[in-house]
Simulated scan of single mutants.
Amino acid sequence: MVNSTVFAPWEDPGQTPLIRIENVTKRFGDFTAIDDVSIDIYTREFFALLGPSGCGKTTLMRMLAGFETPSEGRITIDGKDMAGVPPNKRAVNMMFQSYALFPHLTVWDNIAFGLRRDRMDKDRVAARVEEMLKLTQLQKFAKRKPHQISGGQRQRVALARSLAKAPKLLLLDEPLGALDKKLREETQFELMEIQEKTGTTFVIVTHDQEEAMTVASRVAVMNHGKLVQVDTPERIYEAPKSVYVADFIGDVNLIEGLVASVGELAELTWAEGKAPLIGQSGASLKAGDEAVFAIRPEKIAISREEPEARNRVRGKIVDIGYLGNLSVYHVQLPDGSYMKCEVGNRSRVSRRDYTWEDEVWLSWTDTAGLVLPS
């Protein structure tokens, strides 16, 4: 991920966005796929469009590429209105999920294809292809055909071909979806390294939260054609502005209740006879509102003895998941609801500290959770 403490053009009013999506709506008949979306994306950003299937992220990308036109609003790239500009006249390239490599051409010729179509001088084509092979570490595979290399290598060929024409903007449509988990994780870091080396602006479409959080400088979370939150991965995770974002990104415990008081911290009454839960206050809350307390499992401590923390609940362990680097405890509370707690496995253990049916306390600090509008 680009270091957002250093690279944060979106926080500088003097910076001009490379891409401006202004009040864009896209309808297909009676169906609204994109609903009044506005985003600014800056040069050298690795920007992620994240959301479930059908949320509109691919439609938005296709409008950037020129394969679809907005029903309303406008898109500008590098200050130029894209209305009526066909895909081949835009300083944009798109890398498809299928990679769309030519099976009868070698890796070298696949990368050279677009340059040759643009009638680039032969020597310049050769120099540019060699540069791309080096960038993507494919020099040894230049003479092979796509079926003679691995899935991860094919992905890099598609990336090299997309970057060969030096587009201002590269669009990546679920580019790692065909790779297995371990290779996908390795390739995420390769993508980030290549993006930083080239300085090209990348926009990636993905439904994989972990992928978006790993590679992106900023993430736009979408739902039903609308933007729900646009922010850095850290803020999306630590300071979600809605229950939807909190629930969509990573694991979270959600407890419904009523706001008892609001200041910098908010108190939520949630179960009769139980002390209120305390957390950081979300936007637009007032006393008496229905709200949801959100707390990440890794921010919860588990103990046998009653802790001193104001936020504490008692329950019984009903399930345990061992994930190697951490153990996950599912704890049933007296009201029948469940909470999940994650504990890091820092050393080898021959036995568990806690096991099924144990009565335990869960606790967390006043600022570990959020009280969000329901």
Rank of each mutant, 00 (worst) to 15 (best):
L362W: 11
G273V: 09
L372S: 06
I75T: 01
E357H: 07
A260I: 04
L50E: 04
L170R: 00
P52C: 04
F189H: 11
I77P: 04
F141Q: 12
S71T: 08
K316F: 08
I21D: 00
L101K: 00
V230A: 12
A291M: 13
T201V: 06
K57D: 02
F248Y: 14
V157L: 08
R144P: 00
P240E: 07
Y42F: 15
E130L: 14
D36K: 13
R184E: 02
N253D: 06
R156F: 07
L133R: 04
P175K: 05
E190N: 11
S98R: 13
I34C: 11
Q97R: 03
I300H: 03
E272Q: 14
G273Y: 12
T59K: 02
A83Q: 09
S162A: 14
V219Y: 08
A160F: 08
R128P: 07
P240F: 05
K140R: 11
D12K: 14
T136C: 08
S38M: 12
M222N: 06
L179H: 10
T25G: 07
A178H: 14
F113A: 06
I77V: 15
M94G: 02
D251G: 13
A83Y: 12
K168A: 09
W356T: 13
A294F: 10
T232C: 06
S4D: 10
K145T: 06
D251E: 15
S53M: 08
E174K: 12
V219M: 10
M1P: 09
L179M: 14
P307E: 05
L18V: 11
S327G: 15
E264A: 15
I194K: 03
D40W: 02
L64H: 01
E185G: 07
F96H: 03
N345S: 15
C341G: 12
P70I: 11
Q229Y: 05
S53C: 07
I236N: 02
P276R: 01
V259S: 09
L105Q: 10
M94R: 01
E68Y: 03
E298V: 12
S261N: 10
T232F: 06
Q153L: 08
K134Y: 05
F189P: 00
E196D: 14
R74L: 09
L370E: 04
K89F: 11
K182S: 14
D30K: 13
Q148I: 12
F7L: 02
D78M: 09
K122P: 05
L49T: 06
R296K: 15
V318D: 03
T214M: 06
I111L: 02
P307D: 09
M95P: 06
T59I: 03
E11H: 14
Q97M: 03
D109F: 03
Q148M: 14
M192T: 12
T59F: 00
D231F: 04
E68A: 05
L138W: 07
D247E: 15
E11P: 04
A158L: 02
I194E: 06
E306R: 14
R90D: 01
T269S: 15
R119P: 00
M1Y: 09
K241M: 07
K26T: 02
Q229G: 00
A294W: 07
S71C: 01
V292M: 13
S261L: 07
E72W: 09
G114K: 04
Q195S: 07
F31Q: 09
F113D: 03
T355I: 12
